[in-house]
C-alpha cells in the first residue's frame, strides 16, 4: 500500500514547528525518525493533512548534564544510546536497552522522543524510562511544561500530549556509580516487540529501588511493593512477591501471559543480584 496524499513541511526551529502544528488544525503530525509513523502512513492506518518534519532541529539533539540529572534531547536515536555516543544515566541500562530495539536500521533513525510519544506498550523505552523515573519536557503554544512519564502515560498509545505540543527532552535522575540494574525482555525473535519486559533498579546509595513490569496492555506497571521488599529485605523477599503483585496489577492476563511477566520481572531481579 502507498500513503494517501499529504502536505509536508520541514520546520526550521522549534517555534516554527509549534506554529505549523497549530496551522494544521488537528490534521498535522510530527515526524522525526518515522519508524512507526512511516509504516502506519503506508498502511493508511494514519491520515495526516500536514507532516511536520523536525528531524533537523539541532536543539532537540543535545544532552545536558544537570545536578544529578541528565536531559536527553528528544531526537537522540536508539543507536546513539547503543553506541555509547551519549552518557548513560542508567549506568549501562540505556545502552543495553537501546541496542535491543528492533534492528539496526530502525535504531539508526528511530528517536527517543518519537518512541515515548508513540507510547506503544510493547516498546522498550517507555518501560526503561518509567523505571528511571523520567520527566518529559514539552513545548507548546502556551509555553513549556513538565510531565512525569509514569503519570503522563494514559493508556496504550496515549501520552498526555496535546495535538500542538512537542515532546522536546527527557530528564532523568542519574543512577549512582554503584547502582545495579536488570533488564529482561521476552520476545519471540530478535528485533520483535516484547511479549513481556521486566526492569529492576537498585541504587542503594540514593535509596532508590524500582521494579517495572512492561509490555502489558497499557502503560508499564510499577511494582512498588516488590521494590520495597527488595530494598528492605533483599532479593528473595522481593522475588517471592512478584507473582501476587503481577496478578493483582494485571488481573486480565491469561495464565501464560501472567507467567511470562512474572518470569521477566524475576529474571530482571536476578540480574540485579547476579545470577
Amino acid at each position: 500500500m502507498k500513503a494517501a496524499a499529504f502536505d509536508y513541511a520541514r520546520a526550521g526551529d522549534l517555534a516554527e514547528a509549534v506554529r505549523l502544528l497549530g496551522e494544521g488544525e488537528g490534521s498535522a503530525k510530527l515526524i522525526a525518525g518515522g519508524q512507526s509513523l512511516g509504516p502506519m502512513l503506508n498502511l493508511r492506518l494514519v491520515r495526516v493533512g500536514l507532516l511536520v518534519d523536525i528531524r533537523r532541529l539541532e536543539a532537540l539533539r543535545t544532552v545536558e548534564e544537570g545536578e544529578g540529572t541528565l536531559r536527553y534531547g528528544a531526537l537522540i536515536t536508539h543507536s546513539e544510546f547503543e553506541d555509547g555516543r551519549v552518557p548513560d544515566a542508567g549506568n549501562g541500562l540505556l545502552r543495553q536497552v537501546g541496542g535491543g530495539i528492533a534492528y539496526r536500521a530502525v535504531r539508526n533513525r528511530g528517536t527517543l522522543g518519537g518512541s515515548l510519544a508513540h507510547a506503544d506498550p510493547a516498546a522498550d523505552w517507555i518501560s526503561a524510562f518509567t523505571a528511571l523515573d523520567a520527566t518529559l519536557q514539552i513545548e507548546g503554544p502556551a509555553g513549556r511544561r513538565s510531565l512525569p512519564l509514569a503519570g503522563g502515560l494514559l493508556g496504550a498509545f496515549t501520552l498526555d500530549l496535546g495535538e500542538t505540543e512537542i515532546l522536546t527532552a527527557v530528564e532523568v535522575p542519574r543512577l549512582g556509580a554503584g547502582a545495579r540494574w536488570g533488564w529482561h525482555k521476552i520476545n519471540r525473535k530478535t528485533g520483535e516487540f516484547a511479549d513481556a519486559i521486566g526492569v529492576a533498579l537498585l541504587d542503594e546509595e540514593r535509596g532508590f529501588c524500582r521494579v517495572v513490569c512492561g509490555a502489558v496492555e497499557g502503560p508499564p506497571v510499577v511494582l512498588a511493593a516488590v521494590a520495597e521488599a527488595l530494598r528492605a529485605e533483599g532479593r528473595q523477599a522481593g522475588r517471592a512477591l512478584v507473582p501476587a503483585a503481577v496478578a493483582e496489577a494485571l488481573p486480565a492476563l491469561d495464565p501464560v501471559g501472567r507467567h511470562l511477566h512474572v518470569v521477566a520481572v524475576q529474571r530482571a531481579i536476578d540480574q540485579v543480584f547476579g545470577r
Binding site: P39, L43, R188, K189, T190, G191, E192, F193
Partner: peptide
C-alpha cells in the same frame, strides 16, 4: 496477520 510484525519469519539470529 496483516504485516510481518504479526506473521513471524525466522531471521538470521533464529
Amino acid at each position: 496477520h496483516s504485516t510481518l510484525a504479526d506473521y513471524l519469519l525466522p531471521g538470521p539470529s533464529e
